[in-house]
């Protein structure tokens, strides 16, 4: 189920979705615009665009550092909305941030003013890592009012009644956390992915897998295991960080991001072919 037609359409194509993440404003506003647009050129189907929060408790060091760079360069919620409007991409954007920023925005406490503004600038939904289903009613209601989606993260530890509760609340897509821990690129794909996907295989919402995916082969493997999409953050942020550290030209870093995005998207497509072969279609 989905509220937002653009987000729904991104998953309705007959191929797996590639869902990259970058922190908006990392390492600065103008370069970050180029980087996000490069991801779209490289084949992104949906982009998770991070709004930096000072206490990102679900992030590993790679994305923590990105958030510090973006905050130091002046990113704020208002600048973020400008950023979204300035982007020239034809890909649905999902806002990934922490609840306090949604809660504080605007004249009244609560998420509604933020969601209203998000809808106004064309965002399609939210991922809020510190907001479990128990506390999500106000955001859920605001999302329903403005036709935005609320993505929930299903963790390896999520079972039983918790799964049922999330199934009722989730919309747009479900973010399947491939392993315990924080975000960060890894050298392998967790076997946990198959187990987690099997717990929700009868949900009628697209399933995108993230946490630790770094290479095209990783994307292929999780799609083969049944994922409808591959979410990749830290492996892309690593490219931004290396470019910043070496003082590389923005255009070069953007090219590298586009190439990496292409590799990951092709990996996802390969996974879909392998899955089709295995099932004899």
């Amino acid at each position: 189920m989905a509220n937002n037609p653009a987000l729904a359409a991104a998953f309705e194509r007959d191929e797996p979705a590639f869902v990259p993440y970058l922190a908006a404003g990392d390492p600065d506003y103008d370069a970050s615009i180029e980087y996000v647009e490069a991801l779209a050129r490289g084949g992104a189907d949906v982009i998770e665009l991070g709004l930096p929060f000072s206490e990102p408790i679900a992030e590993g060091t790679t994305i923590q550092d990105a958030i510090v760079r973006a905050l130091d360069a002046g990113m704020t919620p208002d600048r973020y909305f400008e950023f979204v409007e300035d982007l020239d991409v034809d890909v649905p954007l999902v806002c990934m941030t922490y609840y306090n920023l949604l809660y504080q925005y605007g004249d009244e406490l609560g998420p509604r003013p933020f969601v209203e503004k998000a809808a106004d600038v064309g965002l399609t939904g939210f991922v809020v890592p510190d907001l479990p289903a128990e506390e999500a009613d106000p955001l859920r209601a605001a999302c329903d009012e403005f036709d935005l989606d609320l993505v929930f993260i299903v963790a390896p530890t999520t079972r039983g009644e918790r799964l049922d509760r999330m199934r009722e609340q989730v919309s747009g897509y479900v973010y399947v956390q491939a392993r315990l821990g924080t975000t960060g690129a890894r050298d392998d794909v967790s076997d946990q992915t198959e187990v987690s996907l099997s717990r929700i295989d009868d949900w009628d919402v697209p399933k995108a897998v993230g946490f630790g995916i770094k290479e095209g082969d990783h994307a292929a493997r999780i799609v083969r295991a049944g994922a409808d999409g591959a979410i990749v953050g830290s492996a892309l942020v690593d490219i931004v960080a290396a470019g910043e550290e070496n003082d590389d030209p923005v255009a070069d870093v953007a090219d590298r991001l586009e190439t990496k995005a292409h590799e990951l998207k092709q990996g996802a497509l390969r996974g879909a072919e392998q899955r089709a072969e295995a099932s004899g279609d």
Binding site: D130, E135, V154, Q177
Partner: peptide, 13 residues
């Protein structure tokens, strides 16, 4: 309340 990542919620329960 309980504003924590989903991965921690089962442990909190």
């Amino acid at each position: 309340g309980q504003y924590v990542p989903e991965a921690l919620m089962p442990a909190i329960e």
